[in-house]
């Protein structure tokens, strides 16, 4: 009896054990560095943890109720929406265009692939510094160049939409390669026969792209949009370096506002409540996009 049991366990049992063991570090890491801090964040959000006033642990939903009437928060949500929507659209469009272009290019120009990846490797703070100087008229070579012809390039960072534009540009510059990579991988997964079949079926290049390539890229496009959108909810380094949330509060996105509440205003609990809201937003979007993705791919 014991013998047969041992025999049954056999190789697959050991394999399974091995696989589980392989997962252990990842599970531990998730529990320790994601779930525990997340639980802490939720707990804080339902408290009145304040560095100056002291802490009241019985606070219930009051942080969330306060959020409903917080005009600065509302403003930050609009700012975040503008930065995210424009940024993600630009990144996905430019990333896809470059990916499609690179795929068609043959010969020596293929080195371009590596070149286009570079912006993704630059740390965000450095990216922000680069674009801050490009958008600062007294420092920018762009302004210097146009000054030669007596053309004054306006200062972007001192107007509301100019500053949003500038941050979107910086964010797009550093993040479009991510979209490009994913689209390149997706394009590789599309059999070249399909394009040829479409060509024979009488489709022009444009119509082939619209009717064949694009629909086949949809899952990848959805995925990048989701990833970039969620990541864009965490907007911080660009704002911190380029505008400090200005002019006024024009680029104070929600994550930046949470930082102000936590670190400047000492209101750790309210900052946590905002973070919880951002987290739930991201989770909600992920869930819906995952469902949408399923519908598209099957």
């Amino acid at each position: 009896m014991g013998n047969t049991l041992a025999a049954r366990r056999g190789a697959t049992y050991e394999l399974q054990q091995g696989y589980r063991l392989m997962m252990l570090p990842a599970v531990l890491a998730v529990v320790l560095f994601a779930i525990v801090p997340l639980a802490g964040m939720f707990a804080l959000a339902f408290s009145d943890y304040h560095l100056i006033r002291g802490t009241n642990w019985e606070f219930g939903w009051r942080n969330f109720v306060r959020m409903l009437s917080d005009k600065r928060l509302m403003n930050s949500v609009y700012v975040m929406a503008a930065l995210s929507v424009f940024g993600v659209i630009a990144q996905v469009l430019i990333g896809s265009a470059v990916a499609v272009g690179l795929q068609k290019i043959t010969g020596r120009w293929r080195v371009g692939r590596v070149l286009f990846l570079l912006p993704y490797a630059v740390p965000h703070v450095a990216v922000a510094l680069i674009w801050l100087s490009l958008f600062t008229p007294t420092l920018s070579p762009i302004n210097a160049f146009f000054d030669l012809f007596g053309v004054t390039v306006p200062a972007f960072l001192t107007s509301q939409w100019g500053a949003i534009f500038a941050i979107v540009v910086a964010d797009t510059w550093t993040n479009f390669p991510f979209a490009m990579l994913i689209i390149m991988a997706a394009l590789q997964g599309i059999s070249p026969d399909l394009e040829e079949a479409a060509a024979i079926d009488g489709a022009t290049r444009v119509r082939t792209f619209i009717h064949i390539t694009l629909p086949l890229l949809t899952p990848a496009l959805l995925m990048i949009t989701l990833f970039r959108f969620i990541d864009s909810l965490k907007h911080f380094p660009m704002i911190f370096v380029m505008t400090k949330g200005g002019p006024g509060r024009s680029t104070q996105a929600t994550n930046y506002y949470a930082y102000v509440q936590t670190f400047q205003n000492s209101n750790v609990a309210y900052g946590a409540a905002i973070a919880v809201m951002l987290f739930l937003t991201a989770a909600l979007i992920s869930y819906h996009v995952a469902k949408l993705n399923q519908r598209v791919t099957t």
Binding site: G246, P247, G248, R249, S250, F263, N265, S266
Partner: peptide, 23 residues
């Protein structure tokens, strides 16, 4: 005072808004 970082942040935002013509 302990509240200065918060006050300075808020006033600074207003001053910047005036400089850039938002208010």
């Amino acid at each position: 005072i302990p509240e200065w970082p918060a006050l300075g942040q808020a006033i600074g935002e207003s001053v910047n808004a005036a400089i850039n013509g938002l208010m």
